[in-house]
């Protein structure tokens, strides 16, 4: 990974290590929380799913920020554009598929005499 600011090797190594370590800790925490929610069963089913989904989405951001080094700085604009574009395409594909397949399924269900 290239750091834009000129600095000594030692300094850069320590900064890099600190970044990776904090990324690792946050990522581990975001993994542990959903495990805890499922293992203990303290939360309702809906809340559990919400916690898993929420932690998963934050996890994306953590990986991008700490491991892939993509942030909002101007130097990373290209990478950010590509990631946002990927996200858009994934949404189109997933949402489109769900829309189409659910629609087809609904129209199968209303068939008279059909036992799905």
């Amino acid at each position: 990974m290239s750091d834009p600011a000129p600095q000594s090797n030692d300094d850069g190594y320590r900064r890099g290590l600190r970044g990776y370590l904090s990324g690792f800790l946050i990522a581990a925490l975001l993994t542990a929380v959903p495990f805890w929610a499922v293992a203990t069963g303290r939360l309702s089913a809906v809340a559990t799913i919400a916690v898993i989904a929420g932690c998963g989405i934050v996890q994306f951001g953590v990986h991008l920020r700490y491991f892939l080094h993509v942030d909002l700085s101007p130097g990373k604009r290209d990478e950010l554009h590509l990631i946002l574009f990927s996200l858009l395409l994934l949404i189109i594909m997933v949402a489109g598929t769900i829309w189409i397949m659910v629609n087809l399924n609904l129209r199968m269900l209303v068939m008279p005499g059909g036992d799905m």
Binding site: I92, L104, R107
Partner: peptide
């Protein structure tokens, strides 16, 4: 490039989904 990802259903218009889709 972008729109080409939004039109795939026209290859199976007759598959049975509703007119809205």
């Amino acid at each position: 490039a972008l729109l080409s990802f939004t039109v795939w259903l026209h290859h199976f218009f007759t598959m049975g989904q509703s007119a809205d889709v």
